[in-house]
């Protein structure tokens, strides 16, 4: 308990120091984007990691949150915090549309959510009066708080960091609660979960609701981060990217999801040097990490650390260099 607290504080401090270590505005911008990705990955982790639901529709909730926040900020000059919260709530509300499909299973459910994402994207693309159509939304005002502009890259980074940390804490609490246990039980054995008194459909719907709120909040952040929304930022490809994040990092844990999000956002940037090969390499990585099983990269890292700790100790104790003499 204590060590995990120290680890969390350490990671938080490290992340808080990032803009000081790398103050290049472009990179801070990308890091903020990675943090938004982390929130999206958390929402997917709740679905796929805890409840065993493969959602290919998180990009839709992300978009709904973004457009809601942007519209409120542009048309009604709603303060950014409220706009982001409203984005989360409206995304959550729209997740109730999925209630009829939660009783589907496995790949049927995945494809149905993909269908939902495609429909939402088409609405964004075609309803000019609501979303600006294919032009999107421009001139989203910079966030301000008590009269101070928070539009700088560093300020935005810290807004994203605080939000991501809050979502992490919230989801961590959810995971270790009656709700989280019920979701895990559903993912392991639906029949046994029902026999324990869990209403599967209700819990899956709630899971979609919570995940959609988080994705919507991420969308709200994105609106203020990029100050410009294009409907193609929220196509089904985005939903797929979000799923890939979690699988790469390891579906069983929130830190794993965060790691996966960082990789999915940052690696293509880092691979810019490899030019046209970057997405190709990314695809290969997706296959390799998917093949690594449900542990993902975070699981592999943990195993590696354990292995080094164990064998390193034994190596030191045995002193093979003397034993061999």
């Amino acid at each position: 308990m204590r060590s995990s607290l120290i680890a969390r504080l350490g990671v938080a401090l490290l992340l808080a120091a990032v803009p000081l270590l790398q103050s290049n505005a472009y990179w801070v911008h990308i890091f903020s984007l990675a943090l938004i990705g982390v929130i999206l990955a958390f929402s997917q982790q709740l679905l796929v990691g805890m409840a065993g639901i493969v959602s290919l529709g998180q990009g839709a909730f992300y978009g709904i949150g973004a457009y809601t926040a942007a519209s409120l900020a542009i048309s009604f000059h709603v303060p950014f915090v409220l706009a982001i919260v409203a984005g989360g709530l409206l995304a959550g509300l729209s997740s109730l549309l999925l209630i009829p499909i939660v009783r589907l299973k496995g790949s049927s459910l995945a494809v149905a959510t993909l269908g939902f994402a495609i429909i939402v994207h088409l609405v964004m693309l075609n309803e000019d009066w609501l979303t600006g159509g294919s032009i999107g939304m421009i001139d989203i005002p910079a966030p301000t708080l008590f009269g101070f502009s928070l539009g700088g890259e560093k300020a935005l980074y810290y807004i994203c960091l605080i939000t991501a940390a809050a979502v992490f804490l919230a989801f961590d609490r959810i995971a270790h609660s009656r709700f989280g246990r019920a979701l895990t039980a559903i993912s392991q054995d639906e029949e046994a979960a029902r026999a324990s008194g869990i209403n599967i459909a209700v819990y899956k719907s709630k899971c979609f609701l919570v995940a959609a709120i988080a994705s919507g909040i991420a969308g709200g952040l994105y609106a203020f981060h990029s100050r410009y929304l294009n409907p193609n930022d929220f196509d089904f490809q985005k939903s797929i990217d979000i799923l890939i994040m979690v699988v790469i990092g390891g579906i069983r844990s929130l830190p794993g999801a965060a790691l996966g999000a960082a990789i999915v956002v940052l690696i293509p940037e880092l691979l810019r040097a490899s030019g046209e090969f970057r997405l190709l390499l990314f695809g290969v990585m997706v296959i390799v990490f998917a093949g690594a099983g449900s542990k993902g990269l975070s699981g592999i890292l943990v195993d590696l650390v354990k292995y080094i700790a164990q064998h390193g100790q034994r190596w030191l104790l045995q002193k093979p260099w003397t034993a061999r003499l």
Binding site: F179, T184, Q188, D189, A193, I198
Partner: peptide, 22 residues
């Protein structure tokens, strides 16, 4: 039909689901 990847205690805690409300 156990929840195989949960601990023994967690498995039994799930059994209390219907009696709890939080």
């Amino acid at each position: 039909r156990l929840f195989r990847e949960m601990t023994v205690l967690e498995n039994i805690m799930v059994g209390m689901h219907g009696q709890t409300h939080c």
